[in-house]
Simulated assay, not measured.
Amino acid sequence: MFFTQRSRFSVKLRVVAVVTGAVAAAALFAGSPANAQAAKPYDHKDPYKSGCGNSARAVKTAKIKSRANGTIGTIKLMWSGKCKTNWTEIKVGSTMSGSIKVYAQDGRYDTFSYKAGNGGRHWGDMVWANNMCAWGSATAQWGGGRGGQNGSGTTAKACG
């Protein structure tokens, strides 16, 4: 078979491009969060609608504090032994709104935004956290959030 210098160079470039592309695609797939931290059965589901909240208990509790107003609420990291899940619950003033988060040690998390109402009791959705650490955080604001009308809190890690 007869190859010119130019055609050999062209073939080498195509081989290098194909190999480089395959390596890059494999690296992207292996490092993707979806691959590393696959969703579990109860991730991002309501603990009370799923039945996981029926026998749950608080494993860590902390205060939600405002720099200008002191303690404005409580935050609890909840655990369901039945479902092997954690979620975060808060109790704040009924005119407050904000966000509730729960984190699992393997990088999965859930964020839930709440609005004023419900007597100030709110909870986020769950993440599966069997045999690993989990923790929760929350923010709260009222009256537009300006002038110190906001606060936050974080639980300690609970490891199981």
Rank of each mutant, 00 (worst) to 15 (best):
Met1Trp: 12
Thr4Ile: 00
Thr4Glu: 09
Gln5Val: 15
Ser7Ala: 14
Phe9Gln: 15
Ala22Asp: 05
Val23Cys: 03
Ala24Leu: 11
Ala26Ser: 03
Pro33Val: 06
Ala34Cys: 06
Gln37Asn: 14
Tyr42Glu: 08
Tyr42Ala: 08
Tyr42Thr: 01
Asp43Trp: 04
Asp46Leu: 06
Ser50Leu: 02
Ser55Glu: 14
Val59Ala: 05
Thr61Cys: 06
Ser66Phe: 09
Ser66Gln: 09
Arg67His: 13
Asn69Pro: 00
Lys76Thr: 10
Lys76Glu: 12
Leu77Thr: 00
Trp79Asp: 03
Ser80Trp: 08
Gly81Ala: 14
Thr85Gln: 02
Trp87Gln: 00
Thr88Ala: 03
Glu89Asp: 10
Ile90Asn: 02
Lys91Gly: 12
Lys91Cys: 07
Ser94Phe: 06
Met96Arg: 13
Lys101Cys: 11
Gln105Cys: 01
Gly107Phe: 01
Arg108Gln: 09
Asp110Cys: 09
Phe112His: 12
Tyr114Asp: 12
Lys115Leu: 12
Asn118Ile: 00
Gly119Cys: 09
His122Asp: 11
Gly124Pro: 02
Gly124Asp: 07
Asn131Trp: 10
Met132Pro: 03
Met132Gln: 10
Trp135Tyr: 10
Ser137Val: 05
Ser137Tyr: 00
Ala138His: 00
Ala140Asp: 11
Gly144Asn: 00
Gly145Trp: 04
Gly153Lys: 02
Gly153Arg: 02
Lys157Trp: 04
Cys159Ser: 03
